[in-house]
């Protein structure tokens, strides 16, 4: 039917793309396609002539979509970045979540809202997962360094693990530094001396 909105999702990561498509399907009956190629992006998008384009803000390729805002031919439909002029809330929420939408001229905001809501929720989730992953990775790395520093102290001073950790912590507190920084300094120094 002519009224079914077509959406193009620009996303290079297959897993993420699938997850966005799923949540859009839950939000309504849309004709959805995914573009994962970064070269020739604007050309690929305009070939599909969608009503809405969703693009990850952290991708440098987003600038290629801006080109479509300059409709050069009379048959081309001008595309504009979606800005909810009645209330900046939705646009702001989208940008904070890291997604931006481009829509063809004349599309009513209430038709876009369910799409935006679904995309915003999904991108928030991506953001949270990425943050959690980074935090976990950092914690793991810190733990490894501290373990090595403990090992060095145990060997060098003939103390047990608890005492080694206590020594690291006391040094860190005395110097107003983090335990991991002291541990790292120790590991580096040991590496130089050995």
């Amino acid at each position: 039917m002519a009224n079914r909105l077509s959406i193009v999702v620009v996303e290079a990561d297959r897993e993420r793309a699938r997850s966005i498509v799923d949540s859009l399907r839950d939000a309504g009956d849309f004709d959805i396609s995914v573009i994962s190629e970064v070269t020739g992006l604007a050309r690929h998008v305009s070939n599909r002539d969608p009503d809405v384009v969703l693009v990850d803000m952290t991708s440098p390729s987003r600038d290629s979509i801006e080109e479509l805002t300059l409709a050069s031919g009379p048959l081309e439909r001008p595309v504009a970045m979606f800005v909810d002029r009645s209330d900046d809330g939705l646009t702001k929420a989208a940008i904070e979540a890291g997604v931006s939408a481009y829509v063809v001229d004349g599309l009513r905001p209430d038709r876009i809202k369910p799409i935006m809501d679904a995309a915003i929720a999904r991108f928030h989730m991506f953001h949270r997962i990425r943050l959690e992953l980074e935090t976990t990775k950092r914690a793991l790395e810190e733990r490894k360094v501290i373990d090595r520093a403990k090992g060095l102290l145990m060997k060098a001073r003939g103390i047990d693990e608890d005492a080694a950790y206590a020594l690291l912590r006391k040094t860190a507190m005395d110097q107003g530094r983090k335990v991991v920084d002291v541990a790292e300094a120790l590991v580096t120094a040991a590496g130089l001396l050995s």
């Binding site: 991708s59 440098p60 987003r62 600038d63 801006e66 970045m81 646009t91 940008i95 931006s100």
Partner: peptide
């Protein structure tokens, strides 16, 4: 910023 359009939006929206 990852792109010029993102930079523009960050500025326009006050981030």
């Amino acid at each position: 910023a990852p792109s010029w359009s993102s930079l523009r939006d960050m500025l326009a929206l006050g981030q």
